[in-house]
Design a protein around this nucleic acid. Structure first.
Ligand SMILES: [Mn+2]
Ligand SMILES: [Mn+2]
Ligand SMILES: [Zn+2]
Ligand SMILES: [Zn+2]
Lengths: 149, 149
DNA sequence: AATGATATTGATAACCATTTCCATTTATAT
DNA sequence: ATATAAATGGAAATGGTTATCAATATCATT
């Protein structure tokens, strides 16, 4: 691993948190994954190399990273929360297609420019009208994927 | 209650289901409410007049109505599912503002025309590109409401 | 490099929304 | 009215997530 500490190293310190092995390992996994991982997914993946890391710590770390807004937390309706890195080198703003039959999730970036333009406009108007400070948004399309339709 | 059976009466029969008292009562409550009710909310409200209706039946009925697409099921992130009628006399297409502090949910209809126009266009393109049959969508803005910001 | 304050961890148990089970009741076609 | 399958409700089970707490690891200070 060349090139000094990863990009998120300073973020944790900046928020006054310590840089621990579980946090590094979990962040590294999320950084290398392009999937939408559940807490258990992460626990199992991490467990192969670091059997000492407990599920509780996974949950705690995910909560922490979500509060720092380093990751996004989703509920796609399958009974468990799922997480993805919200920023980083290869990150792009995107939304989701969710198959209600098999649970497959497709990231799409088509039209995001147009979407984000409209959403920004809406955000601004809603902020004024309802005096509501908007931090994030989620747009999900639900339906049947190629295999399931 | 003048005017014959309510508008949803035929729907259940049309799907081959029986019209039972719990189903009538739950649908009537959802029809009269403008809130986003949890299963427990519904159970408690219904329980005052019909103490015999059990929580299990509430869950079962909500599942049924969701499958029939008479209601929408949401997860706003507070650990329980919430439901609203998806059609009916006073229904209008709308999206949601969710306060991450107090859980307040605001329905808004501003810009829905523009939104829906763009979303329809996106839906069409995504359907083609990913061979994905889209049934519904959800757009949530998360932030802090007037009181909490 | 050793120290000490305290942030963090991991195992276990608790929590709680939702499901499963199954005997009983109810709706409806005949 | 009767028969039959659908629907119900209470109790117990399930499963993802959170609370508890003693043990451990981090890191500013020495
Ligand atoms: Mn994604
Ligand atoms: Mn609504
Ligand atoms: Zn599918
Ligand atoms: Zn609020």
């Amino acid at each position: 691993m060349p090139g000094g500490p990863p990009w998120w190293h300073g973020k944790l310190r900046g928020w006054g948190y310590r840089m621990t092995i579980p946090r590094q390992v979990i962040l590294d996994l999320l950084n290398r994954s392009s999937k939408h991982l559940s807490a258990e997914d992460i626990y199992l993946a991490v467990h192969r190399t670091y059997p000492g890391i407990g599920l509780t710590t996974v949950y705690r770390t995910l909560d922490l990273l979500e509060q720092m807004r380093l990751i996004n937390k989703f509920d796609f309706g399958d009974g468990r929360s799922r997480y993805e890195l919200s920023q980083g080198p290869q990150w792009r703003h995107h939304h989701h297609l969710v198959c209600t039959k098999c649970g497959r999730i497709i990231d799409y970036t088509d039209f995001v420019t147009e979407e984000v333009k409209l959403l920004d406009k809406i955000e601004e108007a809603l902020t004024k009208k309802y005096n509501f400070k908007i931090n994030t948004h989620q747009l999900h399309f639900y339906g049947l994927c190629e295999k399931c339709r």
